[in-house]
Design a protein around this nucleic acid. Structure first.
Length: 514
RNA sequence: UCCUCCUUAGCUCAGUUGGUUAGAGCACAUGACUGUUAAUCAUGGGGUCCUAGGUUCAAGCCCUAGAGGGGGAGCCA
């Protein structure tokens, strides 16, 4: 099996990188010549008229009459297609028959000024090779609008659609912007472990990692599973956060960030949750809560600006798409701003910063609360905010991103720095319209005695966490950090409604297809 | 996990109070058309009405259970 895959892989024409250029060997009947292919994105710059060109890509639509056939080709480099013109005098009927929606082509020809209205230039084909046929009877994608739910079921093919092409190009740009932002600021990219042995943060249900025989696991004298016989000789799981290890790194490199996969086995069935998602977690020594908020706001504005500058066409497409969706909604559910306006608004305006206590006052005195329109009425200080409350603050009261700070300590994690009032901790959540919580962070408790006391109160085993506590024993310093759900960021920037549509192959309860 | 809505052609959907042979657009096939822009026009093929059971003279439509999906909630990023 492995050998046959190996052979198959290397049966392709070998392209060997050589200082003098690319050399091809083992020429097959279809010459690949990747090095001479011109991408649609480049062709659309319309500065190559008169030149010969080779285009490779997938057929989106074909329109034809007796004299001429037009083929819209997309190669993923752009949301836009490039028009290929095939004259039946040069391209055989046999070939044109195989030019169907979804087929993959290699076209050679001359770039000429277009006689039609929709484009400046086009490729007049002298040869068309069918690299891969797509049977039009069974190929599921048509040149029409499909529902996102249907496309989710064919996630292996949906990447070929305009919408998902745009989403994944933007996702890439955002990921790149994340690294660029931190690199330019002197942060170091740390890889924290995927497999961990602690669930100390209590951030949720974990996926277990084991090589034990599930049907017949080794048992201890007490009848429990004996993890001493497991691969790591202890119980292990997939990481729910890289934060604790991130803190360790920040205590030597000062400013670090992680950007990696995160796993939560929660039975969450919502448009905002995934079982496997990507999280960005910066952790900074010598930062207090204020610095942390400043960084998070600056960071979010930077990556969103980056997308606005570098993904114009894709954002315009998604903006138009969202606007069309809006027209089918009821008048009171339509959003006031379009996608691009919304992104600009976030970039150009300061986030609203309020404390939890202030938020409770606003909510308690709101007409919404007095008229009992909240499902959960706000009565007293100390309760956790429901998403209806967060949405009220962000979407109705302030109408912009909100940084909520200084939450009651009892509803937050053990590692957050305790404030002088004895009731609250230096936590921050950043809430975005339509998305809810996009960032959760805090200044960390750097004082050993405060931290151990809090851990004991919350029944966190201090012995197992000796390595974490060591950072407070030796050279401790004020530090802070936050976690940002990458897919939630992509969700906001693309204006998509469901988090399953901003990751290529989503993992959710009951779904690990593809 | 809870609440709620949905499931009819490959896709998106209509289908009246239960009543004869279940429709449309797109897609597909064939043909027409001197440059199209998700081309257009004509003709044609295509159905386990989600599954199982029930009520009825008669079920796409009513009832029960199940499966799949959407939206909302909780948990969170």
């Amino acid at each position: 099996m492995i050998k046959s895959l190996f052979n198959r892989f290397f049966a392709f024409p070998l392209i060997i990188h050589h200082p003098l250029g690319l050399f091809k060997q083992n020429q097959s009947s279809i010459s690949m010549a990747f090095n001479t292919r011109i991408k649609v994105k480049k062709l659309l710059e319309n500065d190559l008229i008169g030149q010969d060109a080779t285009l490779m890509g997938w057929v989106r639509t074909k329109r034809s009459n007796k004299n001429v056939t037009f083929i819209a080709v997309n190669d993923g480099s752009s949301i836009h297609n490039y028009q290929v013109v095939a004259d039946p005098a040069y391209i055989s009927e046999e070939i044109l028959k195989k030019v169907t929606t979804g087929a993959c082509l290699k076209i050679t020809g001359k770039i000429v000024a277009s006689q039609g209205a929709g484009q400046q230039a086009e490729l007049a084909a002298s040869t068309i090779e069918i690299l891969g046929e797509a049977d039009s009877e069974t190929y599921p994608l048509q040149p029409k609008k499909h529902s996102l739910e249907f496309l989710r079921e064919i996630a292996h093919l949906r990447i070929r659609t305009n919408t998902f092409g745009a989403v994944f190009r933007i996702r890439h740009a955002l990921a790149f912007a994340v690294h660029k932002y931190f690199n330019d600021k002197g942060f170091f990219y740390i890889h924290t472990p995927i497999i961990t042995s602690s669930d100390a943060e209590g951030a949720g249900e974990t996926f277990k990692v084991t090589i034990l025989d599930l049907k017949n696991p080794p048992l201890t004298d007490e009848g429990k599973i004996n993890f001493k016989e497991d691969f790591f000789e202890k119980e292990t799981n997939l990481t729910v956060s890289g934060q604790l290890e991130g803190e360790l790194a920040a205590m030597g490199l000062a400013e670090i960030y992680t950007f990696g996969p995160t796993f939560r086995a929660e039975n969450s069935n919502t448009a905002r949750h995934l079982a496997e998602f990507w999280m960005i977690e910066p952790e900074m020594a010598f930062y207090d809560a204020q610095d942390n908020q400043d960084l998070a706001e600056d960071f979010l504005k930077y990556v969103i600006s980056y997308a606005l500058e570098n993904c114009k066409d894709d954002l315009e497409f998604l903006d138009k798409r969202a606007a069309e969706e809006e027209t089918s909604k009821k008048a009171d559910q339509r959003s006031e701003m379009g996608l691009i306006d919304r992104l600009r608004f976030v970039v150009e305006n300061e986030f609203q910063r309020i404390t939890y206590t202030e938020a409770i006052d606003i909510l308690k005195n709101s007409n919404h609360n007095k008229k009992k329109k909240f499902q959960y009425l706000i009565e007293s200080w100390g309760v956790d905010l429901q998403s209806e409350h967060e949405r009220y603050l962000v979407e109705k009261h302030f109408n912009k991103p909100v940084i909520l700070t200084d939450y009651p300590k009892d509803i937050k994690a053990f590692y957050m720095r305790q404030n002088d009032d004895g009731k609250t901790v230096a936590a921050m959540d950043i809430l975005f319209p339509g998305i809810g919580e996009i960032v959760g962070g805090s200044q960390r408790e750097e004082r050993l005695e405060y931290l151990t006391k809090r851990m004991e109160e919350m029944h966190i085993p201090t012995e197992e966490m000796w390595w974490y506590l060591d950072t407070r024993r030796f050279g401790s310093t004020p530090h802070a950090g936050f976690g940002l759900g990458f897919e939630r960021l992509v969700l906001f920037v693309t204006g998509m409604g469901n988090i399953r549509d901003v990751i290529a192959f989503p993992r959710t309860p009951g779904h690990a297809e593809f």
